[in-house]
Design a protein around this nucleic acid. Structure first.
Lengths: 259, 259
DNA sequence: ATAAAGAGTATCATATTATGATATCTAGTC
DNA sequence: GACTAGATATCATAATATGATACTCTTTAT
């Protein structure tokens, strides 16, 4: 077996993780053979690894169907993450405050490679299910939060990022033209915040303010989602923006190290 | 090395998981030696496993301090969990609705062994930091949510559980007398909901309604926390309870399998 | 300034541990 | 009642993980 490099890389552990990561929106519970298929591992390996995961409490196993599912331990890991991320402690009170004041959905997002990830979500009003869940990742260029972050970087970095980072089409109106995205990012750099429309969900407007780190660059943002029906640009600018910007500023202090 | 049983148990994987679970409220980032100490694994093993975890993106490593921290992948696992748990999809809209209507903190909790775990939290108003985080576990007997669930079980089960499950003292006023807890559970069985005061945090009242499964037994609950200063029992009963009970009822359908 | 300590990193020979092919058992289908 | 698909168990083999040791680097103390 060649696996990855050598000697300070434990193949079995990596394979075990592969099993964990095989679960997603589409695969929420899996039989042994499902797991084997999905991970590309052979039957026996899957059997042993899945069993280990089960014994260790990382996978629940339905005694009837013999299918595996994520266990509560997955939430405990998230809990540990929240404690480990100083930004969360820093931001939580502000976000709650903001959520109540605005009565809209408020999110804390961080940069994760070339994607953003929702670290904390305070949903308000009816949203898509997935729009209420922590841990969701989106291409940074598609999201208002991502653009707000990138906008705080140097012109060269912005250029490079807009040219190379991935884009994904979510709605018929999702911007796929990089020049249009570039314009959005540059505007955000001017204004100090970013807005998007119809990017993830039709008739949804996103407003995001960067949480700027000690080096002047952001890799986190406060983000807010509202319905474009109820919220004109003017109204957003008057009733939402000041508070969002203020929250982002208050949270600002130090953030996380590199990724 | 004896590890656990044999042949369908992969020791290296179990050890790797041990590293992940070494992180908690108190240990939010750790050096190699910290990890070794905390897990009881030897230096070399820790080195190899931590490195594997790092390469696989499960642990971030500060290039300066060489310390390890949970990565964003931990949140992605939580995301997968949310999709796998039918109750979450079922409950989310109701919880958001409830949160807005009551203006108070609303939680979805599930039973996890003899503890409850917060699966979804919609904080409102200022709370303790830990009271805003998904994934937190509490002894079921201490929590209103736990008592509300247990109250739906048979008298024999209730008896056994109240006698044997763990209790922990969080505040000077936390109930540690099992007979008092028993009374609380029995009352909850009568009323169809449970309330507690000063159990986790002083001057905090918890109200919980069981989410009853197809077999008539609950292992999940809708829970709400309010300040005892602002909320008299009468007011709670009039302004909160009906909605909480209604939400729990609406969510009810089918829940998860055994644990 | 120099030594000592502490922590991170790298190497290597050994056998323990994971491997995966095969066989058996169980449950649903036609 | 025969057939299929999936879950579970067994086992000989060598490939893989092991952990002792040695090497570097940075920090603290003398």
């Amino acid at each position: 077996m060649k696996e990855k490099q050598n000697t300070l890389f434990v193949g079995s552990l990596a394979k075990g993780l592969k099993l964990l990561r095989a679960f997603d929106e589409t695969a929420t519970e899996m039989s042994l053979t499902d797991l084997a298929r999905r991970t590309g591992l052979d039957k026996s390996a899957t059997q042993r690894l899945a069993n280990t995961l089960h014994v260790e409490g990382m996978l629940d196993k339905d005694p009837e169907t013999k299918r595996f599912r994520p266990s509560h331990a997955w939430l405990e890991l998230a809990y540990a993450y929240f404690w480990s991320d100083p930004l969360v402690k820093q931001a939580m009170p502000q976000l709650i405050d903001l959520s109540q004041r605005l009565g809209s959905t408020v999110n804390l997002t961080e940069l994760s490679g070339d994607h953003i990830i929702y670290v904390s979500r305070l949903p308000n009003g009816s949203s898509q299910f997935s729009a209420t869940l922590v841990g969701r990742r989106l291409p940074a260029l598609n999201a208002s939060a991502g653009r707000a972050m990138i906008a705080t970087w140097s012109p060269e970095e912005r250029q490079h990022v807009v040219d190379t980072w991935p884009i994904q089409q979510f709605t018929p109106k999702t911007t796929t033209d990089r020049d249009v995205i570039r314009a959005g990012v540059e505007e955000a750099a001017q204004m100090g915040y970013a807005t998007t429309q119809n990017q993830m969900i039709l008739n949804q407007t996103g407003i995001a303010a960067p949480i700027i780190g000690p080096d002047g660059r952001a890799h986190a943002a406060v983000q807010c989602s509202v319905s474009s029906h109820h919220w004109s640009f003017d109204r957003i600018q008057e009733e939402l923006l000041p508070y969002i910007l203020d929250a982002a500023l208050t949270i600002a202090p130090q953030s996380r190290g590199g990724y």
